[in-house]
Design a binder for these strands. Structure first.
Length: 541
DNA sequence: GTTAGGG
DNA sequence: CCCTAAC
């Protein structure tokens, strides 16, 4: 019989296991409609996220074609909608999202801090150095100019396009719906319990430096952390606040200060963002680099943002002064005034942490004695029971200027067999997961998988793992199962539709054959079991 | 801990 | 790859 079946399916080598496990295919999952009642709200968020995603796609296509005038229009509408976007409830449901794009951030430097392309965050006047020393550093120029962000809105919405042309933005379910609290991430067969940042948060709240900063900006920090916080750009006692609904000038300058009834009317075209550092090994991929930059930028913008005011290149520190006392008046030069976006609570997580290193997360920095100390917070020691070196990830960053808050992101090499994880944007205080980096199966891996499945079948992924991928720590049996699923799909579609490294047709043929064989085998087994059950129940009755 | 299947 | 129900 066995031999007959082999011939029937066109190849040799299958060994029906002596004690095949009962297939669990009968264990079909209840379809999602069952959850609908409980998830109505979540579905609403999902819908919004989808709409937002579509909008982003459209924007991406159209924004690059925008001419300068169109860009100006966008900027104005952005500013004019601020009043609405001040309400967290509105923004949190995605109805006033604005977007800027971060893709190609490194490649698109602009030299004019005020005239960079409006289609994305641009890092201006930056220099890239030390590339050969596994340390990519983006420095501001000597004159202190900081990177520039165009099209900044109260609701910052970051989008990145990775190599697969997928979009990662904060419209993802991770941040928009109740799935924000993700299950603890898994590394291999283990799950990681992550520590909440709230403890650190309370500590920092008690520092004098922190309180001073709060008072300085006159805003009581809400206890709840929104993904992106909304903040008034104009204070109630600010003369510029009372009458600014019209009067935005149309010229090309980044800022206009024109006089009308002793009011100063401002048009903010760009903000400066603080410098940040990224440390990444030479062996990392460009995709990893992009993710690293994305992570750093996201970390900056997902935290509390302050607006800093610069006049004539100098920072205005006294918030109680009036505009005229500070020197901001109608006869200012157009470019005399500038605004900066300053992250108050930097939270940059490390990622791509190898398995044998403690996963770390950098809490909100505490200003102590004019130093910005980013403290390391090790995750549960139960995951990493070996080689925990507490000092490895501790960093101290001098912050003499009080302006250039810095973030440092470390990206270990990913060319190991460990379960490297890639960053996912995290919201402060919430449990956050790190997604593993994508590591496509090589042809040899596919071959090993096919060979193992031919022998063992499609329902014994643990055995497949032990047989063919025992040494590959980064491939779990779930991965193998998933890969098989995609292989079957790949084999069924036309070669033109296939993406990624091409899998030899010979292997794909074997996939289809093995899949057919084992599907048939399983269904036949199931029929046999059903028949046995029926006869047994018949006897009992 | 494994498997299956949807996302 | 992630998540998780069902075993």
């Amino acid at each position: 019989m066995v031999l007959h079946k082999r011939l029937e399916y066109g190849f040799n080598g299958y060994q029906v296991p002596p004690t095949p496990r009962a297939p669990r295919s009968a264990r079909k999952r209840v379809s999602s409609w069952k959850k609908n009642e409980d998830d109505n709200q979540m579905r609403a968020f999902d819908l919004l996220a989808t709409v937002a995603g579509n909008l982003l796609l459209e924007v991406d296509d159209s924004v690059s074609k925008m001419n300068h005038e169109e860009i100006k229009t966008v900027n104005e509408s952005t500013i004019k909608t601020e009043d609405d976007s001040l309400k967290p409830n509105v923004c949190d449901q995605g109805s006033c999202s604005k977007t800027f794009f971060v893709s190609e951030i490194i490649k698109a430097p602009v030299t004019d801090a005020c005239s960079g392309p409006a289609s994305g965050i641009t890092v201006s006047d930056c220099k890239i150095e030390d590339i050969n020393h596994t340390h990519l550093k983006i420095d501001p120029p000597e004159n202190g100019k900081l990177p520039v962000v165009n099209n900044v809105d109260c609701n910052l919405n970051l989008v990145i396009k990775d190599d697969d042309e997928k979009f990662y933005g904060d419209a993802r379910p991770d941040t928009l719906n109740n799935k924000t609290v993700r299950a603890p991430p898994r590394i291999g067969d283990r799950r990681i319990r992550r520590l909440s940042a709230s403890k650190q948060w309370k500590v920092s709240q008690n520092t004098d430096a922190y309180r001073n900063k709060i008072n300085c900006y006159k805003y009581q920090r809400p206890l709840r952390d929104y993904p992106f916080k909304k903040r008034r750009l104009y204070q109630s006692d600010n003369p510029a606040n009372s009458d600014n609904k019209s009067g935005f000038t149309e010229d090309g300058s980044s800022l206009d200060a024109t006089s009308k009834d002793s009011h100063v009317k401002l048009k903010i075209k760009s903000f400066r963002v603080p410098e940040f550092f990224i440390e990444i090994p030479e062996t990392a991929t460009i995709s990893s680099l992009k993710r690293a930059v994305m992570e750093a930028v996201t970390a900056i913008f997902s935290g509390e943002l302050h607006v800093g005011v610069m006049l004539q290149g100098k920072r205005i520190r006294d918030d109680n002064k009036t505009l005229s006392q500070t020197g901001i008046c109608h006869d200012n030069k157009l470019d005399a005034l500038g605004f900066t976006l300053e992250p108050n609570g930097l939270q940059v997580s490390s990622f791509l942490c190898p398995e044998n290193q403690p996963l770390t997360r950098y809490s909100a920095p505490q200003t102590v004695d004019n130093e910005l100390v980013i403290q390391k917070q090790a995750d549960s020691p139960t995951i990493n029971t070996r080689n925990i070196v507490e000092s490895d990830h501790e960093m101290i960053v001098n912050d003499k200027s009080d302006l250039d808050s810095r973030a440092l992101v470390t990206v270990p090499a990913n060319n190991t067999d460990e379960l490297a994880v890639a960053p996912v944007r995290k919201s402060k205080g919430a449990e956050a997961a790190q997604r593993r980096i994508r590591r496509p199966f090589s042809v040899s891996e596919v071959e090993a998988l096919v060979e193992a499945v031919e022998k063992l079948g499609t329902g014994r992924w643990r055995d497949v793992k032990l047989r063919a991928f025992d040494d590959a720590k980064h491939r779990t049996y779930v991965d193998l199962k998933d890969k098989w699923k995609t292989l079957v799909h790949t084999a069924r579609i036309s070669p033109q539709q296939r993406r990624g490294e091409p899998v030899p047709q010979e292997l794909l043929d074997r996939v289809l054959i093995a899949h057919g064989y084992w599907s048939h085998h399983q269904s036949k087994n199931q029929l046999k079991l059903n028949h046995q059950l029926e006869t047994q129940t018949c006897r009992l009755v």
